[in-house]
Amino acid sequence: MTYQVKKSDAEWREELSADEFKVLRQAGTEAPFTGEYTDTKTVGVYRCRACKTELFRSETKFDSHCGWPSFYAPLAEDRVEYIEDRSFGSVRTEVRCANCGSHLGHVFEGEGYGTPTDQRYCINSISLTLEPEDGPEDA
């Protein structure tokens, strides 16, 4: 896929912390139950930490108790990209930001959560920033 935001690894390393780079650009995973947004109830928009694209809204966030923030749908289907992931001896669906190609997490289906889509977008907190409904975080 061709991304609107194109940067070299060197440019991403300048902008992201080592941990952010590992997850966003190298498809790493943060440890469960350690992320900033795992249990937050703040109303707002979740954006890609790398390029600031709006990805999820708090209205679709739910408590899955899996250790990472969970959403049942992205803001719009064109905001994310799906990639088949055959690592770790299984087949999963990786979720990336469609604007910059950064790794966000994975989406799972049919787990029985009482959500409208029966999907769980299991997203790394470190891949996101949260803009509260009442304005940007640094306002």
Rank of each mutant, 00 (worst) to 15 (best):
R96W: 09
S87P: 05
Y82N: 07
D78L: 03
E84Y: 08
S70V: 04
W68Q: 03
E81D: 15
F88S: 14
Y82Q: 10
R86F: 13
E77T: 12
C100R: 00
S87L: 09
N99P: 08
E59C: 09
I83T: 14
F88T: 13
S87T: 12
F62A: 06
H65R: 15
F71T: 02
V95P: 01
A98D: 02
G89D: 15
R57G: 13
P74W: 01
E81K: 09
E84D: 14
C97W: 02
F56V: 08
H65K: 15
T60D: 12
G67H: 03
Y82W: 08
K61S: 01
P69H: 11
H65T: 14
G67S: 08
R92V: 04
Y82I: 07
S64W: 02
E81R: 10
Y82D: 07
A73N: 03
I83V: 15
P69Y: 09
E84P: 10
V91M: 05
R92A: 03
T53L: 12
Y82G: 07
G89V: 14
D85C: 02
A98M: 03
C66G: 09
C51W: 03
C100L: 07
K52S: 10
P69V: 11
Y82P: 06
H65L: 15
A98W: 02
R57H: 14
P69L: 11
D63G: 08
Y82L: 11
R86W: 11
S58N: 08
E59S: 14
V80K: 00
E54D: 15
A98C: 09
E81L: 14
C66V: 10
G101Y: 02
D78S: 09
F88H: 15
W68F: 05
C66F: 06
V80A: 04
R92Y: 05
K52G: 05
E81C: 10
E84K: 12
Y82F: 11
T60P: 12
F88C: 14
R92M: 01
R96N: 11
G89K: 13
R86Y: 13
C97K: 01
D85P: 00
K61N: 03
V91F: 01
S70Y: 02
D63Q: 09
Y72Q: 00
D78K: 05
D63H: 06
S87V: 08
P69Q: 11
D85S: 01
G101W: 00
E84Q: 13
R92P: 03
G89S: 15
G67T: 05
T60Q: 10
S102F: 05
E59F: 04
S70W: 00
E84S: 12
K61E: 05
C51R: 06
E84H: 10
L55K: 07
C97D: 07
A76F: 04
R79C: 12
E59D: 13
N99V: 10
G101A: 06
E94D: 11
E77I: 11
S64E: 07
E77F: 13
